[in-house]
Design a protein around this nucleic acid. Structure first.
Lengths: 233, 233
DNA sequence: CATTCGTATTTTGTATTCAAAATTCACTGG
DNA sequence: CCAGTGAATTTTGAATACAAAATACGAATG
């Protein structure tokens, strides 16, 4: 009866679609931190009624991207330096775990796939293609997560990364920092190839800590004179 | 103008209230894993309309307590052994981080408060009061989290703990295991008093790993003959 | 008798409507 | 001219109504 390798028909509901769209808009900074989200406006913009929109907002709220205040509506959650300082140690711990788990389970095939991604990323760096670099960078980290074989971990990591990725757009990489990041990635990929779990965990943690430093410098350098300095994208 | 120390008027919305109630029902096992959640039934039971109920279900879904399938309704998510094996390394990492952060920030006052809770917990153990023991146990772990001063961490930890706490009710503590847990807690509180961050992280991780072992034994001992052995509460 | 097809019923997804709270803004009094 | 009050408007919270999909059920056919 079955003809082809199972066609997973994509059946989506409006609230799912809305949540995804809004999530992207927030993460990519098209909706600024602190911006008030009027239900009426969003409904008109997306051409839907309030019911599915509200369901989507609830979801984004539990993800921490949106702040929901009773009887006062929704707003894009602000991205304060304090938030980032909070998020990074958690991310660090999760990355370390994912590295350790990945080392224990990863196949040779997956390793060489990561190596291929890494080499491609190095090329992007050499060509000064920042967007391409970011994309491959993300795919590598995702690849490590996949290799860890822990969906729950992936889910939490993604939620947190989404919150933090917003900051990346203003981390304005210097040439030095970029080169250093690439070098760190070289160490990371080597640790994976050698299945050095503990070392990999440490490297990932350090890599992340350096990223935080970059962001922190960018923030404190041009900190908004507000009581809570937040990231304007 | 202000008379008294700020009266924090509790203004709750229905969907918030519903989410909380349902969450408790699931965590405490009054709603069995895999049980189908009919919107109609729940609405009648709580005396509300479907709108707020659906919003609550969306929230619980992102928390992982409920499985939402498009056009097919909601069900309490199953608690498979695989789920637990997934959750525990993450919990371990988070606990370790919270321990390290807590050591760096905790005040003497907070330390003695934790010590008081601990001593009270020991008394519960001596009296064989399991429920009381659990409650104090939870308050101690919460206290460590609070001391860490990282709301994001607390939030993630709580979400995960909720998923896992469901398993605790069937971990049927033996006398030996219980005594060992108390001993571990004694080490933990001592590490806090000495501000030994690294040691505390390790102790918390080990404590958790032991808990998993208990649960695992209970599960494999009376594993359901299903393809995916899940926890019947 | 089992299977399959089609219809009826139930259940979910979305839109609309109604109610209550918050915001706006004009007006009054100082 | 400004602060404060109070109605008008807007916006959110919840209920109801409607549409579409899934399930249940039964009849017809082999």
């Amino acid at each position: 009866m079955s003809i082809k390798p199972a066609a997973p028909i994509e059946r989506r509901t409006l609230h799912d679609e809305l949540a995804e769209r809004l999530r992207d808009l927030i993460i990519e900074g098209h909706l600024a931190p602190g911006e008030k989200l009027s239900e009426k406006d969003l409904c008109e913009q997306f051409g839907v009624s309030r019911t599915p929109l509200r369901e989507a907002l609830k979801v984004l709220s539990t993800e921490g991207l949106v702040l929901l205040t009773p009887h006062r509506g929704a707003a894009v959650s602000k991205l304060t330096l304090a938030d980032l300082e909070e998020a990074f140690p958690i991310m660090g711990a999760l990355e370390a775990v994912s590295g350790e788990l990945a080392c224990a389970r990863i196949t040779d095939r997956e390793v060489s796939h990561l190596r291929a991604l890494h080499d491609a990323m190095v090329t992007r760096h050499q060509n000064g293609d920042l967007a391409g670099y970011f994309e491959l960078n993300q795919r590598i980290h995702q690849g490590i997560l996949d290799a860890a074989g822990n969906p729950t971990l992936s889910h939490m990591q993604r939620a947190l990364a989404g919150r933090v990725r917003r900051a990346r757009y203003m981390a304005n990489m210097t040439a030095e920092r970029w080169a250093k990041a690439v070098a760190e990635h070289e160490d990371i990929i080597r640790a994976i190839e050698a299945r050095q779990a503990e070392r990999l965990g440490l490297l990932l943690k350090t890599h992340l800590a350096n990223k935080l430093n970059t962001v922190r410098e960018a923030l404190t350098g041009e900190a908004v004179g507000d009581n809570s300095t937040y990231v304007n994208l």
